[in-house]
């Protein structure tokens, strides 16, 4: 189970991996706001290319990433788009601004150029947000994540919860495998291809109840151990993976600040003060 996780527990060696946790968290927050704020493919494209280049530079294991991409394509790209085309073909008019019909079957079912653009642009926005997320997930380790969030001002108790959660996952995986093996030994069919949906739901209770019991049974022990070591007595704490920022960090932070200034400018002047008439930009000059 552990080797199916996308996040790494050990830090990698490429330049992006070696950045400080705080830099990565800052960058991720700015890039996420960047992608959420805009519906303009011209503005999303550079960020998409940047993130893709970042992912490639980290030389990741491509198999799980391609799997996720494929899954996303089917779920959001094919099913999501089909729903829009079937239920609301007039979306092109309301969100892009025009209706140049390409094919018309009946009054209600038609495909316009703008509708296709709308569907494609929305999928592209989701793809951008996925690529930024993958970049962040591949770059960071759980303890860097906790230290980084603390560094940018999140209360350390929440950060500890986060790193403790990641610390617990391997334990849960081990317990889960133990429970599954013992159930199989008692003759419960766990192969998902051989049992129906209702039977699978019922089995979940068999697996869940011991899993929850053992996991929650540990809470008292962990909490006592933390209390005995003086957890939450002081206002701040230090982190194992906290490092002094290097020169690369300062360069990266400089770039992040520049992007952040652009984001604030864009939100204030383009989205709030002078909002475009239609949410999605298109090359046919509606805004």
């Amino acid at each position: 189970m552990n080797n199916r996780l996308l996040i790494n527990y050990t830090p990698g060696t490429t330049p992006i991996h070696r950045l400080n946790g705080a830099t990565k968290v800052m960058g991720f927050i700015v890039v996420t706001v960047y992608i959420i704020m805009t519906f303009d493919a011209r503005i999303m494209l550079p960020m998409f290319l940047l993130c893709t280049a970042g992912v490639i530079s980290m030389r990741p294991n491509w198999k799980p990433i391609l799997l996720i991409m494929g899954f996303m394509f089917i779920m959001a790209g094919v099913i999501g788009s089909m729903m829009i085309i079937l239920i609301r073909p007039s979306s092109g008019l309301t969100h892009v601004g025009g209706e140049t019909v390409i094919v018309r079957w009946t009054d209600h079912f038609f495909i316009s150029r703008e509708l296709l653009w709308y569907v494609g642009a929305m999928y592209f926005k989701r793809l951008c947000s996925l690529s930024t997320a993958i970049l962040f997930i591949l770059a960071i380790t759980p303890s860097e994540l906790a230290a980084g969030f603390n560094k940018i001002g999140m209360p350390y108790k929440i950060c500890t919860v986060l790193s403790l959660a990641f610390r617990t996952i391997p334990d849960i995986a081990r317990d889960y495998i133990d429970i599954k093996n013992s159930l199989m030994m008692r003759g419960v069919e766990l192969d998902s291809r051989k049992v129906g949906l209702v039977a699978r739901l019922k089995q979940t209770v068999f697996i869940l109840s011991p899993l929850i019991m053992t996991s929650f049974g540990r809470i008292g022990t962990i909490a006592n151990a933390m209390d005995l070591r003086g957890f939450s007595k002081l206002k701040r704490r230090s982190w194992y993976s906290e490092r002094e920022p290097t020169r690369a960090d300062w360069i990266a932070r400089g770039i992040i600040v520049l992007v952040a200034i652009f984001v604030i400018y864009y939100i204030v002047f383009v989205r709030v003060l002078n909002p475009p008439p239609f949410s999605y930009w298109s090359p046919w000059g509606y805004w």
């Binding site: 986060l162 959660a165 617990t168 899993l211 909490a223």
Partner: peptide, 19 residues
């Protein structure tokens, strides 16, 4: 919101995430 609850939230979040 004592240490016990914090640990419970952490373990719960881990369980939630894995499941």
């Amino acid at each position: 919101w004592n240490t016990m609850t914090l640990v419970a939230v952490a373990v719960g979040a881990a369980l939630f995430g894995t499941l």
